[in-house]
Design a protein around this nucleic acid. Structure first.
Length: 275
DNA sequence: AGCAGTACCTGGTTGC
DNA sequence: TGCAACCAGGTACTGC
């Protein structure tokens, strides 16, 4: 389940193989991902040179002169750069073929997604796709801080964890890292967002930044299911402090970690450390 | 407008 | 052993 650090790790893994290279063709084996893959992907992308690979929230954008391929990995999506003759697996839905370079033979960018929650869409040059137009700031920039959380949360009754996971507030904080950040900041995830103080939001924003930056540094290998672009698996839940630890002792105070469902999602917290 | 709930999808795990 | 039930979870959508 890729969250922001995993998507950023993917970007860093594939970008050196893609930037400056021409697309020679696109193979669609299953066009019915979360949404149908639009015809521009097969009609316009081949022949174009990839100018840059950008991440916005958990989306990846392969920019060309005429437009951009917009990718989301969903929960089980994986992007890998492989030789063109790599064996095709059951869930290998799309290959974007790349020309040979001076230092590397022809390659394909392969999109694999068992649960097909991911998507591959098209954004014409000069336009912003609807999916990107209402997103909040990136968590690792100065546009995101405790004051922003505090300001936007006034009068809101939803649980602070759901507020933190709202992409209109800040992007890239998924279920697992939301639990982790609230644990680190000592905030009860069930607390109404509008009742959390300015000081505590400053702490929360700092913890979101710290944890996401640390996870990127670790290569995004903190979550289960994740495979980086080189094909190396992650280290599962090894590093998580709260998530998935129901009944186990809090690493700070020893109190058993509790589990509660918020917004249909499992949430893990320490009833003593988080108030 | 904000919020809760639902749908999408399928591999892996659990329980009988 | 086999099969059914359940779970995971990002995000758009629906309806209150």
């Amino acid at each position: 389940m890729p969250e922001l650090p995993e998507v950023e790790t993917t970007r860093r893994g594939i970008a050196p193989h893609l930037i400056g290279r021409h697309v020679t063709g696109v193979t669609l084996r299953r066009p019915d991902l979360r949404w149908p893959i639009p015809p521009e992907i097969t009609d316009l992308l081949p022949g174009q040179r990839i100018l840059d690979v950008e991440r916005r929230a958990k989306y990846l954008l392969l920019h060309t002169k005429v437009g951009s391929a917009l990718l989301h990995l969903g929960m089980t999506g994986v992007l890998r750069v492989l030789p063109p003759d790599a064996l095709v697996g059951k869930h290998d839905h799309v290959d974007i073929a790349l020309e040979a370079t001076r230092t590397e033979g022809p390659r394909i960018l392969r999109f694999t997604d068992a649960r097909r929650f991911g998507c591959l869409l098209w954004q014409p040059a000069g336009e912003t796709h609807d999916l990107l137009s209402a997103l909040g700031p990136e968590p690792l920039t100065d546009d995101f801080d405790g004051d922003l959380l505090w300001r936007l949360s006034r009068g809101r009754s939803a649980a602070v964890k759901l507020f933190l996971m709202d992409n209109a507030i800040v992007v890239g904080v998924g279920n697992i890292y939301a639990s982790e950040a609230l644990f680190a900041a000592g905030i009860d995830p069930r607390k109404p967002a509008g009742t959390v103080s300015r000081v505590r939001y400053a702490r929360l924003a700092a913890e979101v930044k710290r944890i996401l930056a640390w996870a990127i540094e670790r290569g995004g290998t903190t979550l289960r299911d994740f495979i980086n672009p080189d094909g190396a698996p992650g280290y599962f839940f090894r590093e998580l402090q709260a998530y998935g630890r129901e009944g186990e002792p809090c690493l700070t105070c020893g109190t058993p970690i509790r589990q509660v469902v918020l917004g249909q999602r499992s949430t893990f917290w320490c009833p003593r450390c988080q108030r």
